[in-house]
Write a protein that binds this DNA or RNA. Structure first.
Lengths: 160, 160
DNA sequence: AATTAGGCGACTGATTTTGTCGGGTATTCA
DNA sequence: TGAATACCCGACAAAATCAGTCGCCTAATT
C-alpha cells in the first residue's frame, strides 16, 4: 500500500478541488495557493491522477481540473494508489530465496502484513472525498470498517 | 504510526525468538542466521525492544534474549511502536502555521489520517506473537476488527 | 497572436531510513 | 586470571524518498 506524503497531498488537493468547484474546472494554481503546495509538484500529482481517470483536465484559459467521478464516488484508496504507484509487499518477493521461505517454517509474518494491507485498503476504500468534505470520517469508519456501503462494486486487486 | 521495515524485522525476529526458545535465552546470532538479518541491525532493534520492556536480556555465554511478557501477551502494535519510536501524525504540527489551519476551512484531511492511524493501531493491537506463530491472522482480523474475542482480554489504550 | 493553463520529463538538494563498523562491558567457564 | 560468548552503544555510510524545480511543449480561449 505505501502511504507516503504524496498520497496525503493528493487527497488534500482533491478535497480542495471538490470544495471549490461549482461545475467549473479549478486551476492548479488556485489549489497551490490555497493549500500552499508548489504548483509544479501538483502538476506531477495530477498527471498521475489523470492517467488513473480520477480527474479530467480542461485546457486553455478558464481551464483546470474536474473530478471525473463525483465526490461521492471517488474513494480515498483510489487516490492513494494512483499517486503512490508502487506497492512492494513483504520482502518475500517470490523468486528471491532470501529473507523468506528458507527456514523450515516459511515466512510466518507474511500473512500478517498482507492482512494489514487489506485492512488499510478496506478502510481507505470506505471513505470518499465527500465524506472528508462533510467531516463524516471519525465515527463512520468505526461502524463500517469492512463492508463499504458504497454502491458500485469494486473488483479491484487488494494487492498491497 | 509509521510502518517501516524496522517494524517488520522486529516482528520477524520476535516470532523467531518465540518459536525457538524453550525457556532458554536465544542469541541474536542465531536469529540473525535463521532470518538472515545482520547481527548489528538486530542489536539495534533489540536495544529498543529491551528499553520498552518487550524482551529481557541475559548476558554472557549461553545468554541471549527472552520475551518479557509471554507470546500471547506481546502485541504486534507494541513491537512496532517500540522500534519505530516516533509517530508524526499529519504534518499539521500544532505550532507551525504552514500547511494546515491557514485557509478558511481547517485541514480537512486531518481527521482522515488520524482515523486511519487508529485503525492500523487497533488491528495491530488485536494480533499477538502467538497469533502469528499459530497462523491465526487471516480470517481472524476480518471477523474481529475492533473487539478481540481472543482468550486474553485486551484492555489497552488505543492512543496511537 | 497573445495569454492561459495543462503535459511531460529530467534533474537536484535535503532529509530520512536502513544498515554497518568498531569498539566497549558484563558474564560464564576452564 | 583470562578467554570466549554475547549483549551494549555511538558514529557513520549508503540508499531511498521527499519535495520540489526547470525547461520546454501543446491545446484552447479571447
Amino acid at each position: 500500500m505505501k502511504l507516503g506524503t504524496k498520497g496525503r497531498y493528493a487527497v488534500m488537493a482533491l478535497v480542495d478541488l471538490a470544495g471549490h468547484s461549482n461545475g467549473q474546472p479549478v486551476s492548479l494554481a488556485d489549489i497551490a495557493e490555497r493549500q500552499n503546495i508548489s504548483l509544479s509538484y501538483l502538476e506531477q500529482l495530477f498527471g498521475r491522477l489523470r492517467r488513473n481517470n480520477l480527474v479530467k483536465s480542461v485546457r486553455g484559459p478558464g481551464g483546470g481540473y474536474l473530478l471525473q467521478r463525483g465526490t461521492a464516488h471517488t474513494r480515498i484508496a483510489d487516490v492513494v494508489l494512483a499517486v503512490d504507484e508502487n506497492l512492494r509487499a513483504t520482502r518475500c518477493t517470490p523468486g528471491s530465496p532470501v529473507g523468506c521461505a528458507q527456514d523450515s517454517s516459511r515466512c510466518l509474518t507474511h500473512d500478517l502484513w498482507e492482512e494489514l494491507g487489506n485492512h488499510i485498503y478496506m478502510f481507505l476504500s470506505s471513505v470518499t472525498i465527500q465524506d472528508v468534505l462533510d467531516r463524516r470520517v471519525l465515527g463512520a469508519a468505526r461502524s463500517r470498517t469492512t463492508a463499504g456501503p458504497l454502491e458500485g462494486a469494486r473488483p479491484d486487486s487488494v494487492a498491497l
